[in-house]
Design a protein around this nucleic acid. Structure first.
Lengths: 194, 194
DNA sequence: GCTACCTATGCAATATTTTGCATAGTATCT
DNA sequence: AGATACTATGCAAAATATTGCATAGGTAGC
């Protein structure tokens, strides 16, 4: 349901192709709602049938045609109505397998899990770097933004603040894991005079 | 896929009924992986077919029978193996419609969206309170915990830290929205001498 | 007595998401 | 020359998740 409206939201400013949208959903909007290109093409088809979006073809030399989608007035109206519609407030559940795996922490998997945490830290740092760049480039002076852009800015702030919090948590978690490992009996490696 | 293992994880300590699991997924484990009772019963059936869990019936006076599930040795083995298996690291996307709605911030919906933020703050404060209570009750001295419980503690820490971050963000967002509203021309309410 | 909610289980339909496949030309690296 | 990656679109199947319904007795408040 929401993906439909996320796509329309992305079309508020510019017309975009399915491919463009797929890339947009790898970035800013995708931080809040991920979608694969297959999903996007299917939704675009659905939205076209509803006449909430329409497209024009753009021929390119050598390459496949781009179908550039844009909001219709009916789509714009539907989007505006959706924003004001009831809100199933599921408080964010950070759906990451790693948490479940942490519930299974053991001597056998502690190194593996610590490694996965490090990988997440790196990925998050990269993303955080991207967001900070966007912030500096487009939201350096939030006070002067038009109202709608202030909303986007709030979402961006949430991403940045979540990212920083996540990095701090990973670091703390790694420290605790390192401490726990030291206390472990060096059983497997010990030269046991059998 | 992961729900299967989340359920097995919950069965590590105690045997539980589907109903018990459903309630557990409203609390601690559910912060990381939500599941409805229908899903849980289906997975339990599936897990039984794989012989990864087994159950015994417990008759109760007046009430329906409870089917108490427990891990089998094969289930335990499968769980241990899963923890070490490849990890599709999708960095958490806070899948909340509200972010998309914020991208559509306008004079028409600013009050509504601010109200939804307040509702989220209240819900998060309640949850945070629950987590802090769990922390004080069961994880007051994290250093002395056995290894596996330290993993659970890390997940709990993540929940607490995310919750606090979220509250701080909501407050900042509400302030920015309040500031933005003040700057708005008082168009709709003004006594316009037509 | 009626209403609402809790314990306790589960089926079925629908909606959403993921994964695999398919096509086709261009560009870049080795 | 061949491998890999990028632009660009889309179908189909499988896995997951949500929503509605169904049963059945117990407890608590009005």
């Amino acid at each position: 349901m929401a993906l439909r409206f996320a796509i329309m939201t992305a079309l508020l400013d510019d017309e975009m192709s399915g491919y463009d949208l797929a890339r947009a959903f790898d970035k800013s909007l995708g931080f809040f709602w991920h979608a694969s290109h297959q999903q996007i093409y299917r939704e675009l088809k659905n939205l076209s049938e509803r006449s909430w979006v329409a497209h024009r073809a753009e021929r390119q030399a050598g390459r496949p045609e781009r179908h550039l989608y844009h909001l219709t007035p009916a789509g714009r109206k539907a989007l505006d109505a959706w924003v004001l519609q009831g809100d199933r407030m599921r408080l964010q559940e950070s759906k990451d397998e790693l948490y479940i795996k942490l519930y299974n922490l053991s001597e056998q998997n502690i190194d593996y899990l610590a490694g996965r945490l490090v990988a997440r830290r790196e990925a998050m740092m990269e993303r955080l770097y991207l967001y900070e760049r966007i912030r500096r480039r487009h939201y350096a002076d939030p006070h002067s933004l038009p109202l709608r852009r202030k909303g986007v800015y709030l979402a961006l702030l949430s991403g940045i603040s979540q990212g920083r919090q996540y990095l701090a948590w990973v670091d703390e978690a790694l420290e605790i894991l390192a401490g726990a490992k030291e206390e472990l009996p060096a059983s497997a490696v010990s030269i046991d005079p059998a």
